[in-house]
Structure formats: structure tokens, C-alpha cells
Computed example of a mutant assay.
Amino acid sequence: MQSTYPRFLEEELDEIAPEEALFHVIPVPLEQTVSYGGGTGEGPSAILRSSSQLEVFDGVSNPSEHGIWTAPPVETYGALEEVVGRIEEATARSISLGKMPVLLGGEHTVTVGALAACKAAFGEIGIVQIDAHADLRDTYEGSPYSHACVMKRACDMGHTVFQAGIRSLSLPEVAFRKTHPVHHLDARDIAMDGIPETVLPDGFPERIWLTIDVDGLDPSIMPATGTPEPGGLTWYQCQEIIRKAVKGRHVVGFDVVELAPVKGLHFPDFAAARLVYDTMGVITRDAVCS
């Protein structure tokens, strides 16, 4: 019987020590503040199980040559603030070894803990966010740790944010983007004018964290998510944005969040696993891994 949390690419790769791997895959099955469809707590397990169907050749290179180690899942019981603290600790452990944490969500709130660890280790960094939603609310349904508040918490930490694929904003979020340095390339702009050669603005930090909410993809590609929005990114648009954003920059880590598996529908789980692995490939080829 397959483990609930198998190693990433377990059927292809031998087990290695964390010190031998560039990528530290950290499952975080968090589901506490979902506000429409549920199921994100099952996302990390589904990604890990689906990764067994991946080829190590991603179409361009073999990212697994850099080493992939899978950590035990972060415990997600208890108060949300405490869970965020555990996520921060798990992320910090990988950073302290000079490795790249790769968080598998779980709802988008998992990113808050990772960004707190980055702030402690590196100071202010750039956040590249692929998402359908701005996630810039100060609170949502009474919680500052809601998945709808993740990028507001990033701004509060002093990080610089770039958003791609956004197509759903509240009026207060629209106002916030006008008065704060939240750079963006929204889905409508991409549909009308395509993706520019340079996506990040001048002066954007050299160290970046990449956060990918799977609902940034169009629902025709990714229906298994709690808050789908029409008009999303295609598969190759998503990859192009990632490639252009990370090129020549120091990537300190990334996450893929908000997969909510649908029973009997396997392709979104596999697509999320492929997104994780393809992002590893883009980073090892085009970015500075540190």
C-alpha cells in the first residue's frame, strides 16, 4: 500500500539525506480558512502520490540530478498562528542548511510561515505570486491569517510583491495596489497584450520567493481548487512568467498551494506535481539557486 506521504518522485529516485539535496520538499496539509470549496488538506498527499508518474526528464533537463529530499508533513492542528510558526521553523531548517524549501499546500496561508523564515534569514526579498486572487485583504472572515490575506502579510513584513494572473480583486485590494508598491501583470493584460520580455520592474529584489496558487491556471487546466476563476493562465504562459521572473535572480524557495483534489479526477493532481517539478527545472536552468 502506498504511503499517504511518499517521497517526491519516490519510484524514480533513491532516498538521500537532506544534506545531499538542493530541493527540500515540505508537505503542509493545511485547511483552516477555506472560504468556498474545500479539500486543500489533501493537496500535498495528492501531489506526492502523483509525482510517482513523472519522468525525471522534464523535456529540457533532469532537475532531480540536483537532489530532492522530502520532509515529514508539518503538523497543522491547533491555532493557526501556531501552525504558521511550525511552517516557519520547517522552512528555516532548510534555509539554514543552504537548501531550497519547496512547500506543498494546503491553503495559501502556508506561504506566510515561509516568508517569515525568509525575512529572518535574508531580510526583505521579492515575492513573485502567480494567482487568480490578489490576497491583499487585511483580514477575512475575522482572521488575519486567512488565505485571502497572504500577500498583505507579505507587505507587512516589508517584502516587495509582484503579482501575475490576477483576475479577482475586492475594491479595497484595488485601492491598496494603487497606494503600495504591489507590481502586477493581470490576466486581462496578458490576454490583451501578451507577456512582456521583462516582467519584473526595475529595482525588484534579487532574492525572490515564488508562490504559485494553482488557481492562477485556467480552470480548464486546473479545476481542482477551491476558488476557481475563468480566464486564467495557460500552462506555457505560467511557465514563461516563471522563467522570465527567476532568470538571473537568487531563488530562495517556492511553494505550490491550493490544490483541492477531486475524487476520481486524476489529471489536476498530476498537473500540480508536474508544475512542482517543472519549476525545479526552470530554477536550476535559469536562476541562481541560493
Rank of each mutant, 00 (worst) to 15 (best):
F254T: 08
M222C: 05
Y36L: 12
S35K: 11
F204C: 05
L80W: 08
I208Q: 04
G281N: 09
P44R: 00
E240K: 13
L115H: 00
E141P: 03
D215V: 03
R86C: 01
T284L: 10
A90T: 06
E197P: 01
L185Q: 10
G165P: 03
A164L: 08
A273N: 09
A114R: 03
G39D: 11
H24N: 10
G38E: 14
V214L: 09
G38K: 15
F267V: 06
E42C: 00
S52D: 13
H133I: 11
M100W: 04
E10A: 14
Q32K: 14
G264H: 13
P144I: 15
R7K: 13
L185D: 05
E15A: 15
R7L: 09
S52G: 14
Q129S: 13
E19H: 11
G98R: 15
G123K: 02
P29I: 00
H66C: 14
Y277A: 05
D138C: 08
H159G: 02
S52N: 14
S143Q: 08
C238H: 11
M100L: 15
D131L: 11
R285P: 11
E12T: 09
I47G: 06
F204R: 03
Q129Y: 15
G37K: 09
L97R: 15
Q237C: 06
E15P: 04
E20T: 11
P101Y: 04
D269N: 11
H133D: 12
I212Y: 04
V174D: 04
G113K: 07
E42Y: 04
T111A: 15
C149R: 05
C149K: 05
D213C: 06
P63S: 12
T33I: 10
D135K: 02
P219N: 02
A164N: 09
A260E: 04
D193E: 10
P223H: 05
T225C: 14
A260V: 00
P228A: 03
I241A: 05
A117F: 00
D202S: 15
D202L: 13
A120D: 02
V28M: 01
T40G: 01
G105C: 08
M157D: 00
R167K: 02
E81P: 04
I87G: 00
M192S: 12
I190G: 01
A175G: 01
H24A: 06
F162Y: 14
E12Q: 15
P228N: 02
V252H: 01
Q53A: 14
D58Y: 11
P205F: 01
I68M: 05
H108R: 07
I130D: 08
P268I: 07
L115P: 00
G248L: 09
G123M: 02
P63D: 10
G67F: 13
Y77H: 09
